[in-house]
Amino acid sequence: MSSWNEQVDALWGQADQISDAELLAQMRALASERPNDPLALAELGGAHDSTGHPVEAANLYQRAVEAGLSDPKLSQVVIQHASTLRNLGRHDESIAMLRDHYDAQPDHELAGAASVFVALALATSAREREAVVELLRTVEPTLPRYNRSIRAYADALEAGEI
């Protein structure tokens, strides 16, 4: 018999081939095997998120964190939860959550993805200039050339000079 984690991975692997209702039913069944387990709550939150139930997803993500979810799943759930909050119109909470988690660890493998979600939250809250600055500052270190120029453009955009 496969482990619980393997069963969850297998379910996510077939998520595009089954109905949303079936994905939720199967994830609920798996989560019921581990009541109040932070990882089970996080996976169930993800299932609600991917099937268009953001309020339930946000609540489950919050419960997972409160139950002691740890890395590496915690860092993924921070992004997923923040994205869900953005979808619910809670832009400032989304931005704060991502910055609180990832500003403390700028070299985290998901820090770039977190910046993209910050930019999305900024853009959907009518703060497009800040969103562009966020993306420029995220992309700049990865570029082989033009770094100085891109930093200067980001600074000028941030200062309202362009």
Rank of each mutant, 00 (worst) to 15 (best):
E93C: 03
A152C: 09
F117M: 05
I95R: 06
K73G: 03
A159Y: 01
P106H: 03
E158I: 03
K73S: 10
L85D: 06
G112P: 14
P106C: 08
D100V: 02
E161D: 09
T124V: 15
F117S: 11
D100W: 11
L122C: 00
R90L: 12
S125Q: 11
T142M: 07
L157W: 14
E128G: 00
Y146K: 15
R129W: 08
S115T: 00
S149Q: 14
H108A: 02
S94L: 05
E93M: 08
I150E: 08
M97W: 03
L120Q: 07
G112T: 15
G89Q: 10
A156T: 09
A152L: 10
V116R: 09
A126F: 10
Y102F: 15
R151K: 11
D107L: 09
A113C: 12
V132E: 09
F117L: 07
I95D: 05
L98C: 14
H81R: 09
R129C: 10
V116D: 13
R151E: 14
V139Y: 01
A131Q: 05
P106W: 07
T142V: 07
S125K: 12
V78E: 14
Y153S: 14
R137Y: 04
A154M: 06
S125P: 06
N147C: 13
A154E: 06
D100H: 11
L88V: 04
I95N: 01
I79L: 02
N87E: 13
R99Q: 11
R129S: 12
D103A: 04
E93V: 03
A121C: 02
H108E: 03
E109A: 07
H108T: 13
S115A: 03
D155F: 02
P72D: 13
E109T: 15
R137L: 09
E134Q: 14
V139R: 00
V118N: 06
S125E: 15
E109Q: 13
H81A: 15
R127Q: 12
L98Y: 07
A119R: 01
A111C: 03
K73T: 07
S75G: 13
V132C: 12
V133G: 14
R148W: 03
E161Q: 13
V78M: 10
Q76K: 12
P72T: 08
L74N: 06
G89R: 10
